[in-house]
Design a protein around this nucleic acid. Structure first.
Lengths: 340, 340
DNA sequence: AAAAAGAACGTTAGCGCTAACGTAGAGAGG
DNA sequence: CCTCTCTACGTTAGCGCTAACGTTCTTTTT
């Protein structure tokens, strides 16, 4: 309850300007109901006095804050940093503040965080993916807060979703690789259940190869989705018999680690084995051989998502689900043409 | 002002429990003044009713929130993600919520953000580096909010600082490289003024070489601190005459890009040219030749910083400035021994 | 010129919570 | 038996702001 002694309150500005606090409130919020002359005087005075309107009080009075709470699995992967970066421009422009959480691929952590965030009366919530704890989904649907799901798509989003079709992306890569004549594919990923999007891509890949009567081998590594994990996964996959002829990694991080492992094992890429990743990270721009990958529009996805979200916050309900394009980017780590 | 219809208020819980709202408040906050039986009953009821105490109202009444606002230059670089990750564990455990901002290496953006954050009555602010806009510093000193500066050190922090001595780290690398016989060093970085810490490292390196009467060449690239920027910078540096015999990059990202550029140019590393970076990123774990670099304790720094910050929030003033160790990590991208 | 309309303010009543203080009743001490 | 103290509550008065509704006073309309 202690009122900070140095704090300038709206009342102080009102007194100094010789008006009521409502005029100050209206003037500073840019709301109608004050003459331009008065508004200018108040604005100047407020700046001089170093008045900073309390968001706590304002949000409490309006029963909603300008916070947009964003949950991503991790920030170690630049992918989510890029999506967030894309969103921020639009959100900041709309006067919204962002809170970021990293769930470390845990639904329970995401659910607990949602519970905490609701207490802030946020303007909106942004979740990564479309697979959430059932409790969390129920809570959100009853809370009436706009929810945006990013990075994945579903026909039944909570409110809005903007993402990519991971299964289709995996299938596209699968068809591409199968078309190049690969017949002993292996997927290198982390423990199942951690990253649902990666599982969908793997499933898509498996589907595509299944059309050729080929089964997908899987090599799981218990660890974070890192360079090192790809390195380990590749080493293990290479030790298998028969040796895979192409490795599809969870993402480009793992793929790069895997590429290093293949070369360290004395294998020629793509001569002896193919390597493919996912995302189109910028490490690709400096590699002597570009990684075969699928390019995802992270920044653009963020921008689009934020635009839709701002509209939703303002009461517009646009199309509920938007799928962004994924571009297959054949590189030099897989064959260029069908091998006879 | 609209009271959301579905919202459960503390009053609703109080009525249901047949007690006053203060008992509910006390019970749920774990404060003394309620019998254990009553507390248990209230806690159970609150959970059943789905009551979520409003942080807005609570923070307003207390005149301080549980928000810790953290500003970092970028999240594209995993370095800051790791520092944040280290801090979060401790902060979350202490019941603090984190807000993250990326300033994109702009003091003006940092200053504007500080201004916005003050309106939330945060429990503390965390800034990256010790070089801030003068206005921002003044504002913070008068606001009475605990401020933690991370990633760099200074004898005169705003409140607390936990970081590393970048000049010393640069000097240590300089002495190491000079000791290996390198005499035509070049620093590859981004536009001066963007990253003050990198400038300090470059200055340290220059100092060390100056002791041998050697001047440091500099190659600046106008761009983000990325793989690509290192690639471009290295290409340009290699075109110079005389050609440098060792390249010290802003960080490991640039260094890796530069390493690729050197190899693409047909140079042998470390035979023809040495390459050194900074940070000790985990990409190093999968490279065929480890990059010569300085390892920084990011996660540990975050943990330590958060511990100090929590203490400061609770009113304890520990040592104001803490320097963490930086470990020189000679790799295979520089000579192993002095060349005759 | 009287009535209606509109601009530019001010007043009132909260938003949902907590600090500080008040109070009733039980138990202890003399 | 009467204080005294302590526990377990309740009551009061805000925290700093905004929505909704008044109140002037000027301008427009008929």
């Amino acid at each position: 309850m202690g009122r900070e002694p140095g704090t300038v309150r709206i009342e102080d500005v009102a007194r100094a300007a010789g008006v009521s606090i409502m005029s100050v409130s209206r003037a500073l919020r840019g709301v109608e109901g004050v003459s331009e002359a008065t508004r200018a005087r108040i604005t100047r005075l407020a700046a001089e006095m170093g008045y900073a309107p309390s968001r706590l009080a304002g949000s409490l009075a309006r029963a909603t804050s300008n916070l947009v709470c964003i949950s991503v699995p991790t920030l170690f992967d630049a992918v989510f940093a890029e999506i967030i970066s894309g969103m921020r421009v639009t959100l900041t422009h709309a006067g919204l503040e962002t809170i970021i959480e990293t769930s470390d691929y845990s639904r329970a952590r995401e659910a607990a965080w949602i519970e905490r965030m609701i207490k802030w009366s946020p303007a909106a919530l942004v979740l990564s993916g479309v697979d959430h704890a059932p409790k969390a989904r129920a809570r959100l649907e009853s809370a009436g807060i706009p929810v945006l799901e990013i990075w994945d798509v579903t026909p039944r989003p909570i409110d809005l979703c903007v993402g990519i079709d991971h299964r289709a992306a995996g299938a596209a890569m699968g068809r591409h690789l199968a078309g190049l004549g690969y017949r002993r594919p292996a997927y290198i990923g982390i423990r199942p259940g951690r990253d649902p999007r990666a599982e969908k891509r793997a499933a898509g890949l498996a589907e595509a190869f299944a059309e050729h009567g080929v089964a997908l081998a899987q090599q799981r590594v218990d660890g974070p989705p890192s360079f090192e994990t790809g390195h380990i996964g590749a080493r293990r996959a290479l030790a298998r018999s028969p040796r895979p002829d192409v490795l599809y990694f969870l993402n480009d991080h793992l793929a790069f680690g895997g590429l290093m492992a293949c070369e360290a094992a004395g294998l020629s890429v793509p001569g002896d084995i193919g390597v493919a990743g996912f995302n189109g990270l910028n490490i690709n721009d400096v590699l002597p051989r570009r990684l075969t990958t699928s390019e995802t529009p992270r920044e653009q996805m963020g921008k689009t998502a934020a635009r839709l979200l701002v509209a939703a916050i303002r009461g517009v309900r646009p199309e509920p689900c938007l799928a962004m394009p994924v571009a297959l980017a054949p590189g030099a780590t897989t064959r260029a043409i069908l091998r006879a």
